[in-house]
Design a protein around this nucleic acid. Structure first.
Lengths: 198, 198
DNA sequence: AGACGATACGGAGATGGTCTCCGCATTGTC
DNA sequence: GACAATGCGGAGACCATCTCCGTATCGTCT
């Protein structure tokens, strides 16, 4: 009864094996085809039946949430790196937002369910979003204390902006300069003017 | 051969009747349910078969494009009103962007296909987008001539920002202040600082 | 090792959506 | 009133999501 401590029976070995295998396959699949690809196709590629896929992850969102949780750790590492290396709080916020932007562009179409998670609150993605907003809030507050960011801006708004920019960037494949333009548009929005700015 | 001038045969009366009827029904439907609602449901509500719907509009985008073309006229009227009434070019641009933002929120989910039309270029919505970008460009250039907008901003980027803001605003039902926050974030991006600003 | 209960798997199929095809009805003309 | 030409309707092909249950596999207990 060693598993009594966790209150749950230990799960079967094949189940665990299947779960990690599904995640590996889904990660490649989403990276290649975007997150709207057919679920049954993922099951087929993983060599399992649709029933098995859906027992592990009851819908696309749940699968996505599990995938992102793994990627979350990379982002946390990035956060710690920025905290350790970047002393200027304004630059730190900028770098964090950049990291966030890259993270959210990992899979094509990812911004959509993340935005939905902000309203739906019942989504398994909601937790991930919340933690990202919190981190953004921390960087933002530090920058605001040092006068590097405008005091009325909120972390949630910056997160939404990042999401929106990533969403829009799906349209600028042929025109990468638009992405930079949007980024700097937003950045001008939260940053305080440098001394000597027009 | 009075129709030879246009190069086409005059279409049957019932066809024309059906077309306008479909448009009326679809407009209400999209306004109520958002643009992702079932096409067959629209046909049913219009009292016609799906085949008829698809013969008039081969897909959702085509239907949307026809709908927006009608709404386009309202927006053009708005544009002329701004041109006539607002003398300050900076304020004119701001008002135009506001009108654009409202226009694009008329149907829930509209930003998505509009963004897609910017890349796909084969979309029937591409023309509409292009004309909106052109108008934005005109207001922007006027503002830039008068020193009211930063010279490096492009009309296309402002249009994308408006789209992105409208997209994000789907997430802020419970929190309307976020929408204002995003708007002002973007506005700070393109506007030149007023004299005496921080 | 063997047998038994619990657990997980697989895939057939229910449901719902997009879009097509073709026999039939409606229209406009002579 | 008859005859092309044109448009209509809806059955159904196709694809996606997600469920259900008979069957296979696993872990355990003797």
């Amino acid at each position: 009864m060693s598993e009594a401590a966790t209150g749950e029976r230990r799960q079967r070995a094949d189940k665990q094996r299947n779960r990690t295998h599904i995640l590996e396959v889904a990660e490649r699949f989403f990276a290649e085809q975007g997150i709207t690809g057919s679920m049954d196709a993922i099951a087929k590629r993983a060599g399992i039946g649709p029933g098995t896929l859906y027992r592990h992850f009851p819908n696309r969102e749940a699968l996505l949430a599990a995938l992102l949780q793994a990627r979350d750790e990379e982002l946390e590492a990035r956060r710690e790196a920025i905290r350790g290396e970047v002393t200027d709080s304004r630059a730190a916020l900028a770098q964090w937002l950049r990291a966030l932007g890259e993270w959210v562009t990992a899979f094509d179409g990812l911004p959509e369910p993340l935005r939905a998670a902000l309203t739906g609150d019942t989504s398994p993605l909601a937790l991930t979003c919340q933690s990202l907003i919190t981190t953004t809030e921390e960087f933002l507050q530090a920058a605001q204390r040092d006068g590097g960011a405008k005091p009325w801006v909120r972390g949630r708004d910056l997160f939404l902006s990042t999401l929106a920019t990533a969403w829009a960037s799906g349209a600028v494949l042929a025109d990468a300069s638009s992405l930079d333009a949007l980024d700097s548009l937003v950045r001008t929005g939260w940053e305080t003017p440098e001394a000597g700015d027009a």
